[in-house]
Write a protein that binds this DNA or RNA. Sequence first.
DNA 1: CTATTAAGGACAAAAAATATCCCTATTTTT
DNA 2: AAAAATAGGGATATTTTTTGTCCTTAATAG
Lengths: 162, 162
Amino acid sequence: MILKSQVEWALHCCAILAGLPEGRYLSTKALAEFHGLPKEYLSKALQSLSQAGLVHTTLGPSGGYRLAKAPAELTFLEIVEAVEGRSRTFVCTNIRANNPCRAPGYCEETPCAVARIMWEADEAWRDKLRNVRLSDLVEILSKEIPSDLWKRSFEWVLERAG
Amino acid sequence: MILKSQVEWALHCCAILAGLPEGRYLSTKALAEFHGLPKEYLSKALQSLSQAGLVHTTLGPSGGYRLAKAPAELTFLEIVEAVEGRSRTFVCTNIRANNPCRAPGYCEETPCAVARIMWEADEAWRDKLRNVRLSDLVEILSKEIPSDLWKRSFEWVLERAG
DNA sequence: CTATTAAGGACAAAAAATATCCCTATTTTT
DNA sequence: AAAAATAGGGATATTTTTTGTCCTTAATAG
């Protein structure tokens, strides 16, 4: 059970978009080049963000993406779910229904206890991601990344932002 | 990102094995029939439990599986990890290394901040599963399952246990 | 008018999940 | 001693998911 690589890509792209000045846009091409990713496939991840309403887009030259809200209002969970989907990691196929001792037509009203426990763990995972904001990530990165690299990256992006 | 169906199977099988009297064994065949699962493939899940040391096995007629420890000493996490593996759901491919602004030979010493955050969520998921014991599940099931079905299932298993 | 962009559909390749089959060594039962 | 049933595990096949490419369309800036 491994998350799509697009989740990693989307998070890093959002971190870049978070540093974009008001009203500017960054294209798929620039984001793919910056991260060394296949442009066409990264585009699918960005489309997922767009469909989820997390980013705004414009067409044409100087078009691209920008965040739809402030980094402090955007959670990790929103980004992860936009790309990975909202379904649970544990799927209950209700195998208890196959118990040969059961009355034939008997139908369970409540979800299986096994599923409920597994879903609680899923929810703990979501809770954790819901409590991390994109602005938290940016703050950590701004401290960790060498200031010259940070500055050069910022300039690199601005040169390409429409 | 969905857990293997074998995870569900293993949890239900452990719940059954938890009710097995001391010294008795239940075969793959019986477990597969009880849950309506493909015997050969369920066998792989049970082998994973065996390799993880969670169950004991014996060969020959009247052979099969029994728990290696008391249900109160066996956690959901142990069972899930035995089948699903211990790797994290988020894999960091270190795409920050592709940043064209970086010095060529520069090598990160610390894990990426994105990965650290995602791994914390993974750990919250594990913590939740670590704190549920197989005995907790059995207790819930014993309350939820109609007592006649519970009793008949118990008898069904005992008839087939070696 | 031209160049560039996002959106998205169609398709292909690779990887993982889900099986199935068969052989072996062991153990219980007959 | 023989027969039957078992776990273990290797080889292989099928299906689904992930990853990736290619191409068309509509919009937009210069």
